[in-house]
Design a protein around this nucleic acid. Structure first.
Lengths: 214, 214
DNA sequence: TAGATTGTTAATCGATTAACAATC
DNA sequence: TAGATTGTTAATCGATTAACAATC
């Protein structure tokens, strides 16, 4: 497939397409038009056609898009079958929630190790993964060819953790801290989740709304 | 202040400005130019000036922007002093993490109630907030004039929960489920956090990178 | 005053939407 | 064939960047 550079905006929408196509498949819908899909997803039909066409002609004129095929194509495009090997750093509340809450296998990952600097947590199981002490991080990553790390540690611990991971070849991060990884390591792939930024944005919207009412 | 409609892109950047200005203030930096701030934040100076100017002339020609004043202005614009009264639904792993992890007071909120449908969790403390059974939700919201709800429940439970909250006047949501609230309630203010979408986007980037290497 | 730096307008870039010919 | 619906080009819209006059 001759895939040219896909814009960031399209990429961000792909998981949504995937989710809705899964739902349609579960409802045994065989085909869907860009118009109908757009309606369900509350976007324009134009956008649906533009987006899907970035990856090749999955639709048929006069017919629409075959739901199952399209779903699987997007699954491949997203690379959800890769089972990327992941370690999670930080077995506190957030790390616990991520480790138990996310359906990693369905999202392209396999969680193989959890690390924490707190001695007391070592040996505890979260799901079926055992928590190890921080000190084992390097040997574990090298032995297990880790692809990606999920950072659920405090911001203050992040620069050191990233350095250690980077030094044993981990170049991809799911980052819940405010540490700006790509500032120091431009060749990394990073997905940031800034929960506190999201809260502030919500606060702004609520505050703004109040202004309008008065 | 005559604040015209601020674009979504600017709003999303506001928390970042606020964070960096806090850091600068802690370092006792008194003033900063758009150029220097842009450098720190890895954006263009043009964008900094455009963004800040949406809210009024905080800068002075030939001088730059006063850090402390600007920080406080943005704090006001974000409405972080509002202490919006919040309830959290779902005291599972994610709810626990959110309740203990977030510095609500600094982010414009005050967590006053936690609810779960699991009888066993009722009475348990998370931080200094007690978990109540779901059945008390309505009476509690009405008595306490709740502004906003954080939804850390399963998707399947979301439509019912939102209906109940909406019916007792809660119109703002921080939504961790995939339930599309604004589809059913267009007059609500919603901030969505779709962690699984983020994971898939990360997976895509990793998968794409591989393609390039080969 | 001279230098620095903003506020603001104009130019560019990218993303979304509209339109329609191609075709199943 | 006629109707439906895509793929794709062109038009529009919005956001970012560049430029520079205003002014501290």
């Amino acid at each position: 497939m001759n895939r040219q550079n896909i814009s960031k905006s399209v990429i961000k929408r792909l998981p949504r397409y995937y989710r809705f196509l899964n739902e349609l498949e579960e409802q045994n819908v065989e085909r869907i038009s860009s118009n109908k899909l757009a309606e369900i997803m509350r976007v324009t039909a134009s956008q649906v056609r533009q987006d899907l066409n970035c990856f090749g002609g999955f639709g048929h004129q006069g017919y629409g898009y075959p739901v199952s095929t399209l779903k699987n194509e997007i699954k491949n495009i997203l690379g959800l079958n890769n089972n990327y090997k992941a370690v999670l750093l930080g077995a506190g509340n957030l790390g616990n929630a991520i480790a138990t809450h996310m359906k990693f296998e369905k999202l392209g990952f396999k969680l193989v190790g959890i690390f924490d600097s707190n001695e007391r947590l070592a040996g505890k199981y979260i799901g079926d993964v055992i928590v190890q002490n921080d000190s084992h991080l390097e040997s574990f990553c090298k032995e297990n060819k880790i692809d990606v790390a999920f950072l659920c540690i405090p911001r203050s611990a992040a620069p050191d953790a990233v350095k250690r991971l980077y030094d044993c070849g981990v170049k991809c991060f799911w980052n819940f801290t405010h540490y700006f990884i790509q500032g120091d390591y431009p060749d990394t792939i990073v997905e940031n989740v800034h929960l506190s930024d999201k809260m502030m944005t919500l606060c702004f919207s609520m505050n703004e709304q109040e202004g309008k009412n008065e």
